[in-house]
């Protein structure tokens, strides 16, 4: 079954998703990867931004992610 891929920015609060790809520039990939956001990792949206950053948990830590950046993180719903 084909996965439904959306930007993180559209994910409602309380939902768990898996990162599929990072659409940003070259520097961004390395930056996000070093903070534990790589394709395959599971994150949960705690608080929706817009305006203002998103709060998401990756592993056991909370990350605040700017709305612009949340547009570039492509995710799919878990388990599909």
């Amino acid at each position: 079954m084909k996965k439904h891929v959306t930007p993180l920015a559209t994910v409602p609060a309380g939902k768990k998703v898996r990162i599929v790809s990072l659409a940003g520039g070259r520097g961004m990939y390395a930056r996000l990867a070093s903070m534990g956001l790589v394709p395959g990792s599971e994150i949960e949206v705690i608080g929706r931004g817009a305006p203002g950053p998103f709060i998401a948990t990756a592993g056991n830590c909370h990350l605040a992610i700017g709305t612009g950046m949340a547009q570039k993180i492509m995710v799919s719903e878990n388990g599909k």
């Binding site: 961004m28 930056r31 996000l32 903070m35 950053p53 909370h62 990350l63 605040a64 612009g68």
Partner: peptide
């Protein structure tokens, strides 16, 4: 770009 850890 804004990505920041929110420490517990």
């Amino acid at each position: 770009p804004f990505v920041m850890e929110l420490p517990p």
